[in-house]
């Protein structure tokens, strides 16, 4: 049987069908007043606006913001060995790792291999943090930065250099008990 679009229309009831005299008048007026009570009640509580971007909401320490790659503090070598485990764990398939071999002349990481290319496509990332959990070397962690909008999608593909660099502006951390 052919589908008849008209038969599929469901009627939506958007309010009382009839205004209904005095009762209707009360409903319209009384309910408005009830709403206004809430509004004026709030006035009493003062202003609570945060002046973003001048001001920022502090985040919890475990907040999962933009990723960061790390180096060893003493040697300056990259912790990432390009093992691709993060890429395997990533549910949205947004990490791309191309590994290469360290040589005595060009030592990038501590292991035999290093990530020659390490890219995260942040426009696909869902900030689940699986990559951080998968990493056997704590080379990648979820940072606190959440200001990630950009005018161009391809600018949201973060390269290794971008991920290794310190974020320009630090996101405030929520203090203990805050």
């Amino acid at each position: 049987m052919a589908w008849d679009p008209d038969k599929d229309v469901i009627e939506v009831i958007r309010g009382p069908q009839k205004a209904g005299g005095a009762g209707g008048l009360y409903r319209a007026f009384g309910e408005t007043l009830r709403g206004l009570k809430t509004t004026f009640g709030q006035l009493r509580m003062g202003v609570d606006t945060i002046q973003y971007p001048e001001e920022k909401i502090p985040v919890y320490p475990r907040f999962r913001g933009r990723h960061q790659l790390h180096r060893f503090e003493d040697t300056g070598l990259e912790k990432c060995v390009g093992c691709s485990l993060c890429a395997a764990a990533c549910p949205s398939d947004c990490i791309r790792v191309v590994a290469a071999e360290n040589t005595p002349e060009n030592r990038v990481s501590a292991g035999e291999r290093y990530a020659a290319v390490y890219e995260i496509n942040l426009s696909r990332c869902i900030f689940c943090g699986y990559c951080e959990i998968a990493c056997p070397f704590d080379a990648i962690t979820m940072g606190h930065e959440y200001e990630l909008s950009d005018a161009n999608r391809s600018d949201l593909i973060f390269t290794k250099e971008m991920l290794l660099a310190e974020p320009l502006e630090r996101t405030p951390l929520r203090a203990e008990g805050e």
Binding site: C83, S84, A87, A88, V98, A99, A100
Partner: peptide
């Protein structure tokens, strides 16, 4: 093939 790719790549 050394370090070229992982099976999931």
């Amino acid at each position: 093939y050394r370090f070229r790719a992982r099976p999931w790549d």
